[in-house]
Computed example of a mutant assay.
Amino acid sequence: MTLSLRMAASVTVLLICGGFLNSTVAAAQPAPAIAPQWLCSPDLASDPCDLPSDTTDLGTGKVTPAQSVNESDKPVDCFYVYPTVSDQIALNADLTAQPEIQSIASYQAARFSTQCRVFAPIYRQMTLTPGIAGGVLGAPLAPLAYSDVLAAWNDYLAHDNNGRGVILVGHSQGTMMLRKLIHDEIDPNPQLRSQLVGAFLMGGNVLTARGSTVGGDFENVPLCTGRGETGCVVAYSTAVADPLLSLFGNSSIDLLSAPLGLRTGPAYEVACTDPGPLSGDAGPVGITIPSSPFAFGIISILLGYTSFPDGAPTSATTWTTSAERAVGACTEVNGYRMYQFHLTTPGQQVNELPLFSSHLVDMNLGYDRLVSIADQQIQTYLAGN
């Protein structure tokens, strides 16, 4: 199927969803926030954010043993909001830890657990289908999802934070929720800004004023520009080919920010912070994922088609890094600011989805560089506090 045909197919699906939603939007009214439900928390005996860190690198054959860190020894916390992953046939997901939600938390948050206590709320997110289409078409779905995230954040501050530093981690819809949270709750609050160790807001169109590190989503919280810098944001979306039509990277073609009242438009630019210089590792990197299969569903099917058409990398250890290596850089092509990468070794290629580029590997491509950035931020934060 050619790229243009696949784009047409995606648009057709959106329109079909839109036809269905015309009769259901009226029923999708915001509901009051309810008591937080935690997917990951230090109070849980086990959760999907607590995977051991032992890793096999298929490119080098190196096996790295698990790093054992007691919860009480972790100096800061991470607050993680997962991306669009729910397979439920509903506009908003319910508050259950569905298998696909557990899998994505392991994929995206568990690697950070060597650095921080991980708190991750379950929230009534816009579902893969028809929720995202419904939100784009105007149903009040995103505010309902955000009400859960905000309630969990306030609960965490009231009962668990105790003045500790915090790292925010999100992807896609999770990043959209955290953009709203930082904009409303953290950016205007000097005390909370002083506790912000850093934020990893991946695949979600973080905006700044053109040519600036602030002035879009946030007036005071800047993009990260140097190693060990704290209180700043790491943000980018990945791509392989030059973007032609994507939901990510272009502030003028952004259907995902408006449902929460976030800024859009040509006065702003989408953030791209190169993780190479920020981590101190600009060399080729692999894709690091849990060795256990992703829970079956829409995301696992898409991962099989796009990211791992020859099969996901796996090994006897908890984590596996792909044999293939890639290098990348922030680029601006056709009005899109993206982290574009290409393979430096032979192996399976990363295919791209129409409208989504290589969205599914935003976090896991060079995953350990993000963990290294977090570690350096923590050291700087502790030295200053």
Rank of each mutant, 00 (worst) to 15 (best):
S147H: 05
Y336Q: 05
S4M: 14
Y268H: 11
T380M: 04
I89M: 15
V149K: 01
A271D: 05
N351P: 13
G138I: 09
T175K: 04
T60L: 03
L141I: 09
W38M: 10
H171G: 12
N364E: 13
V197Q: 00
A329Y: 11
A241W: 13
V285K: 08
D242F: 10
V197S: 00
Q195R: 03
G304Q: 05
G138V: 11
M7A: 15
E71S: 14
S53R: 08
L247G: 13
A31T: 13
H359F: 08
G163M: 02
R164Y: 03
E324M: 05
L39V: 07
G19E: 13
A383T: 05
N162G: 12
S172W: 03
C49G: 02
G198V: 00
I101Y: 06
Y236D: 01
T331E: 11
A27T: 15
Y107W: 14
P36N: 07
I16W: 12
E324F: 05
Q376Y: 09
Q102Y: 12
S53P: 10
C49M: 02
Y236C: 01
V63C: 04
L21D: 07
V361E: 04
A152V: 00
L3H: 15
M363P: 13
S251I: 11
P259V: 07
T321F: 02
M177E: 01
A133P: 05
